[in-house]
């Protein structure tokens, strides 16, 4: 396979950014489908939404697994989006680096918390 890292990494030309571009869309579709799934279950439940109705939606292992995948998709999606925002508006390299590192730490921390919550109850 052709070397595409280190000093040989291709950062210009056709297809550069294709992976992130596509990932942004794939993760978006996954999250949109998840939204529909959760929303549908909330809407078909009868009576007022209680703790049991709400936690019951996330109780099955299949739903936990799907939610886990959606959390990972969200982290990647947000990273691509925030990176785009930083690249467009933050010009000083040091500030951009600091913000990008902050975004990564922020996202991983949030992701860890969300996954802990998901499999704890």
């Amino acid at each position: 396979m052709a070397v595409n890292y280190g000093s040989k990494r291709i950062v210009v030309g056709a297809h550069y950014g294709m992976r992130d571009w596509l990932a942004q869309r794939v993760t978006a579709v996954l999250m949109a489908l998840f939204t529909v799934v959760v929303l549908a279950q909330v809407l078909i439940s009868s009576g007022p939404i209680t703790y049991d109705t709400w936690s019951g939606i996330f109780a099955p292992q299949a739903m936990k697994t799907l939610t886990f995948a959606v959390i990972m998709a969200m982290l990647y999606h947000v990273w691509v989006g925030m990176r785009d925002v930083f690249m467009d508006y933050i010009k000083p390299v040091i500030l951009r680096l600091v913000l990008q590192v902050f975004a990564i730490v922020w996202l991983i921390a949030c992701g860890g918390w969300a996954i802990q919550v998901l499999w704890r109850f």
Binding site: S55, F58, V78, G81, W106, C110, W113, A114, V117, F121
Partner: peptide
């Protein structure tokens, strides 16, 4: 809206946490 949700992500996860963990946290 994207940046706003990024910034408020801990609040979202706090809501997920407390709403789902137990009756008491609910």
């Amino acid at each position: 809206s994207g940046v706003l949700m990024f910034a408020l992500m801990p609040f979202v996860i706090w809501m997920f946490d407390t709403s789902i963990s137990s009756e008491i946290s609910y």
